[in-house]
Amino acid sequence: MTLADLAHPRQDYSYGFLDAFARRELRRRILKAIAIPGYQVPYASRELPIARGWGTGGLQATLSVVGPQDVVKVIDQGADDSVNAANLRRFIARMTGVETTTDTTKATIIQSRHRIPEERMDKGQLLVLQVPDPEPLRHVQPDSSQAREMHADADYAQMWLSLYEQLVRFGRFMQGASYPVIVNGRYLMSPSPIPRWDTPALHQSAHLTILSAGREKRLYAVPPYTDVRPIEFSDVFFQVEDQAGRVCTLTGAGQKYMDELPQPSGESRFRISDTGYVEKLLKMAQGESTKIGPTYYDDAGQFWMPGVIK
């Protein structure tokens, strides 16, 4: 017997890149985040071999929970094939050897930047959202220690005031993506820059959502079956982006979140932003067998759970 026989084979990086201490820390913080829905839990946030601000928060969450049995899907702006999504996916696969997919229903972990898939996520699935700015109070209070006190006091008056100001000036709420929500009736939370179209998908969802900001070193969570309500007035309601009249040029489908593609003629064409969903619609159109899950919005644009969008 030689010494080489006894030694482990050389391994340049740990499984999932992060060392055991970082992984343990993240798992503990994630558990805390799940226990206090919508509360921002600080974590050390290690640098990863991906530029900071490019999804390193989501990546750390994914890498700390992923295991050999998982199937991972990564999307950016709804697209599986964008260079950024492809890059994150190949990094996760390289460091863990997990299977990857573009099919929302087959994935056990979906890491996403700026979108929630159109097909409804189910129990047992994990959605990891990349977060650039975890602090929904930032534009009313840039000082993070003061914002923390406001959360502790549930002092969100300035948010209501800014909503009211928008209403007076523009006749509507002007918040685009990252529309702030109240989680479990307690914490104001940024749902990450998902369009308003996706915000209702977080309410009473069967899946777990982890939101993680690597640069800002905060993570938070929405456990399954938790109330997530966008802030609104009792007589003026939160509204999702209007998709009426937009028809996907690839699939002919409507009432899904559309990417607008400007045309030289001055007009616009539209394409469904969720490429995994498009892939399945196209397969079905060609008569191939595929299983499309129930979607959040039906073909008439009605959200599946009544009473969520007023």
Binding site: A51, R52, G53, W54, T56, D76, Q77, G78, S82, N84, R113, H114, R115, P132, G176, A177, S178, P193, I194, P195, R196, W197, R215, E241, Y257, M258, D259, E260, S273
Partner: peptide
């Protein structure tokens, strides 16, 4: 620096929402 260059990433979903 990471956040500065992240603006190179596509933002068309958020831009569409705005």
């Amino acid at each position: 620096s990471g956040f500065c260059i992240h603006y190179k990433l596509p933002h068309y979903v958020t831009f569409g929402s705005a």
